[in-house]
Design a protein around this nucleic acid. Structure first.
Length: 829
RNA sequence: GCUCCAGUGGCGGAAUCGGUAGACGCGUUGGACUUAAAAUCCAAUUGGGCGUAUAACCCAGUGCCAGUUCAAGUCUGGCCUGGAGCACCA
């Protein structure tokens, strides 16, 4: 065995062997229980970054650990390869997005292999390939048939920079999630998926996910934003047309209806023109035009002074007969509730601000009996008792919510209403590099789905990327014109493509049956492998991808395609990779190229280091010194093995009782096995796993230092046990080093096929313990004693200690607490 | 403003149930080996009492203030700070 560690050499060698032998291929049929370990698949942007390295290493170690523990493990990888960067690169370099994407995939595949990841490459999926997007289109059609896809004219988020619309989830602080430019509102006819139909079950089923972090679950719950309230219809008494009109209002505060002093509709409110008098028309029109021009940021800014104009018409309050004016103001949002708000300035901060500015009347209707507020300086929004509220006076406001709504229901102008903030998912994109939406427009028959046997609707090749201001796909001469599947007449293809998040909402299902050319996936196969047992990825997908995927799973279940309702049983959201305290990014120039690490230190060092310093969920600060330290450690392990190679045998036998130093080492090994196994099993605490590798290595070195130059036969057996255990324990992390050493020591097959180490509970216990003796809860002495001392004996040892004697001298012992195997606490006065 | 998460040495972090605070590593300092360096090995490393060294001892200490307990990094209440998410959602 070579004395020095040459990672580059051995890594290349074993990667080739694994690839050739398909070492990590997963068979569907196995007697073993299944385990599905999944990393969020990458966008092929060009090169791997350290975030990828961290993500894939974590999942890889989990997959290997589970495999060694007797599971049939599915550990696949693929490419989320549709999307704008490919198209932008195409425009910039005048290449085509497919070539750009393919080249990136090829390069990144090479890097993944260099990292020594145990993927089943036969299940690789690539979302931009027709054999994948055919099924994305097919699933679109299933949802369409199910009534979960529709097209409508709507105010949508438009990013000028990207030249396309965005889903609500893709607008961050009023800016585009991708390019950070300000998002505008546009009125366009667009395709939507009815995710709102699943709002309630998406919220409720979060409780079925104990394996998800609370942070992600609360983020989703907030995003879905369920609130309970009521809708009341307010009759308009002076509509200019003279017709009978009502303005429905959604409120979560039915208890405050007696305090309404005006009503606000959003500038985009559908009936606003009919509710405006001739005298006010000009001002209202101007106000609305202004609101249209405003960006989402300006409009939604909370510190902006509220503005509005009166419509000139009035409503009657059916609860008390009072008459109040109608206004339009942009603090009312057309997309939420009914687009109209009943204003109670005394008990709502926003209404209060508005009322102050425009001198609206105010009327207190909720009061804290102990500390009544006149609401002159601020709205009172705390609980209280109803006043000035007719027959409801004296009622607690929380009870009044129900009573008042019920009253309105009985009288026929109100209903109980649950409202969600979640909006339908806008999926059409005016871009080229995505899955074409499989519908056509026929002059006679209207919108028609493309028949399933005509899928995939292929992306055209004859497109011009240099035309600004419109989707490149519309420049194709061959794509648009087609035949209507119903009447056979002329039809025009939809030129919008799907949001890439549609592609990534079901890829984890395809892995289970990746090579099925007949079906999207086989129901039984998917039912077997899913749900994913462990999903690992970045927190940035907490809402977007994870919510969409949960929706897809539920919708496909309802389409009868599968039989489970949550896709990801356990979710590990890994922290970011930082350098010098800031997220690694090209713009900050603090990135570390994985290739350089592979080249200088090898993949095993990279894997070890990325797991070593922080628990997976926390942010990880990259340090060059840390990499160096891990490299030195691997050298140290290698040296330990190589210098002892002649004394190591794979079929060692331990004949108890052992000589003391040997007994101690065997005990240390058992403790390490136990500790490492538990640390991986509980929450994947890889940082402590690695510290235990180091402890065990240190212990073997210490043991060796205490030995004479010549080992006894027993020494050799014990050393073999220790070193082979260390190698097996390290095999999920240092995948190449351990494989090489395994073979150098005469191992047959792969170390990665070996079962995990087992420990003996009795041998994992120390024969002696350090007894901690406290006086009044403060540690005063530590005494080495036999582990199996009785409680009385422990107490006696404690009282016999000279240090303790000195401490308690002249005091009375009030009581003595003995914690078996740990400590004695003497309470004195 | 609301929600969630976090706060422990110079740094990353460790500490099943409340039971030795600081495992393991990085860094630093000193030493061994070497002509020298690299590599390697050994030792020290929370602060203070404590500015010769050695050995020992004592006190304080896990963001802050209270509380529960024989015993609190860990539990409870109230704050402070940082991060993340949502945010005119009626």
């Amino acid at each position: 065995m070579k004395e020095s560690y040459f990672p580059q050499e051995i890594e290349k060698k074993w990667q080739a062997v694994w690839e050739e032998t398909k070492a990590f291929k997963t068979l569907d049929n196995s007697d073993k229980p299944k385990y599905y370990a999944l990393s969020m698949f990458p966008y092929p942007s060009g090169k791997l970054h350290m975030g990828h390295v961290r993500n894939y290493t974590i999942t890889d170690v989990i997959a290997r650990f589970k495999k060694a523990n007797g599971f049939n493990v599915l550990h696949p990888i693929g490419w989320d390869s549709f999307g704008l960067p490919a198209e932008n690169a195409a425009m910039k370099h005048n290449a085509d997005p497919e070539t750009w994407t393919d080249e990136n995939i090829a390069y990144m595949t090479k890097q993944l292999k260099m990292l020594g990841l145990s993927y089943d490459w036969d299940r690789e999926v690539t979302t931009c390939k027709p054999d994948y997007y055919k099924w994305t289109q097919w699933l679109f059609l299933q949802l369409y048939k199910k009534g979960l896809v529709y097209k409508k004219e709507a105010a949508v988020n438009w990013c000028n920079e990207c030249g396309t619309v965005l889903a609500n989830e893709q607008v961050i602080d009023g800016k585009c999630w991708r390019c950070d430019s300000v998002v505008e509102k546009k009125y366009l006819s667009q395709w939507f998926i009815k995710i709102t139909e699943y709002a309630d079950v998406l919220l409720e089923d979060l409780d079925k996910l104990p394996g998800w972090g609370d942070n992600v679950k609360t983020m989703q719950a907030n995003w879905i934003g369920k609130s309970k309230g009521a809708i009341f219809n307010f009759p308009v008494i002076d509509a200019p047309s003279g017709e009978e009109m009502y303005v429905p209002v959604y409120t979560t505060r039915p208890d405050t209806v007696f305090g309404i002093t005006y009503l606000v509709v959003a500038p985009e409110y559908k009936d606003i023109e009919k509710l405006t008098t001739a005298e006010n028309e000009e001002a209202v029109e101007e106000y609305r035009a202004n609101a249209r021009k405003m960006t989402e940021i300006e409009r939604l800014s909370t510190d902006r002074v509220k503005t509005g104009v009166p419509l000139g018409t009035h409503c009657r309050n059916p609860f008390n007969g009072e008459v109040f004016p109608l206004w339009t103001a942009d603090y009312a949002l057309v997309e939420y509730g009914t687009g109209a708000v009943m204003a109670v300035p005394t008990h709502d901060e926003r209404d209060f601000d508005f009322a102050k500015k425009y001198n609206m009347p105010m009327k207190v209707v909720i009061e804290n009996p102990e500390n009544p507020s006149d609401c002159k300086d601020a709205a009172y929004t705390e609980p209280g008792v109803l006043v000035n509220s007719g027959e409801f006076n004296g009622m607690k406001n929380n009870e009044a919510k129900k009573a008042i709504t019920k009253w309105a229901v009985d009288k026929g102008f109100g209903e109980f209403k649950t409202q969600y903030r979640l909006r339908d998912w806008l999926i059409s994109r005016q871009r080229y590099w995505g899955a074409p939406i499989p519908v056509v427009y026929c002059e006679k028959c209207g919108i028609q789905a493309v028949p399933e046997d005509q899928l995939p609707v292929m992306l055209p090749k004859d497109v011009d990327f240099s035309v600004a201001g419109k989707s490149p796909i519309t420049t194709s001469k061959t794509f648009k014109d087609t035949i209507c599947p119903v009447c056979g007449g002329h039809a025009v293809r939809e030129t919008d493509t799907m949001d890439t998040f549609v592609c990534s909402s079901w890829y984890y299902l395809r892995y289970a049956d990746a090579n099925n050319s007949e079906k999207c996936f086989d129901r039984d196969v998917v039912n077997h492998w899913l749900p994913v047992d462990q999903y690992v990825g970045g927190i940035e997908h907490a809402i977007l991808h994870l919510l969409y995927s949960r929706f897809f799973t539920k919708a496909l279940r309802d389409c009868g395609l599968l039989d489970f309702d949550e896709p990801f049983k356990n979710l590990l959201t890994q922290g970011m990779v930082l350098k010098d305290g800031a997220k690694m990014s090209k713009s900050k120039g603090n990135t570390v190229d994985p290739d350089e690490i592979f080249e200088n230190y090898g993949a095993d060092t990279a894997r070890l280091f990325i797991l070593s310093d922080s628990p997976p969920a926390r942010d990880f600060d990259w340090s060059d010194a840390g990499v160096e330290g891990c490299y030195k450690f691997l050298n140290r392990v290698w040296r330990l093995i190589s210098t002892n190679a002649d004394n190591i045998t794979l079929d060692y036998k331990l004949n108890f009782p052992l000589e003391k130093s040997n007994d101690d080492l065997v005990r240390t090994v058992h403790m390490a096995i136990k500790g490492i196994t538990n640390d991986i099993s509980n929450d994947f605490q890889f940082n402590t796993v690695i510290s235990k590798y180091r402890e065990l290595t240190n212990a073997i070195y210490d043991w060796q230092g205490g030995k004479a130059s010549e080992y006894s036969e027993e020494d050799k057996q014990v050393l073999s046990f220790a070193i082979i255990s260390l190698m097996k324990l390290m095999s999920p992390v240092a995948v190449h080093l351990t494989e090489e050493a395994w073979h150098e020591l005469g191992g047959v097959g792969s170390i990665h096929e070996q079962p995990w180490c087992e420990w003996d509970e009795n041998l994992a216990k120390s024969s002696s313990i350090t007894l901690v003796v406290q006086v009044n809860g403060k540690v005063k002495d530590k005494i080495d004693v036999d582990a199996d001392l009785s409680q009385d004996e422990m107490k006696q040892v404690a009282l016999d200690s000279p240090k303790i004697k000195a401490q308690i001298e002249g005091k009375t012992i009030v009581k003595t607490i003995v914690v078996p195997g740990k400590l004695v606490n003497i309470v004195v006065k």
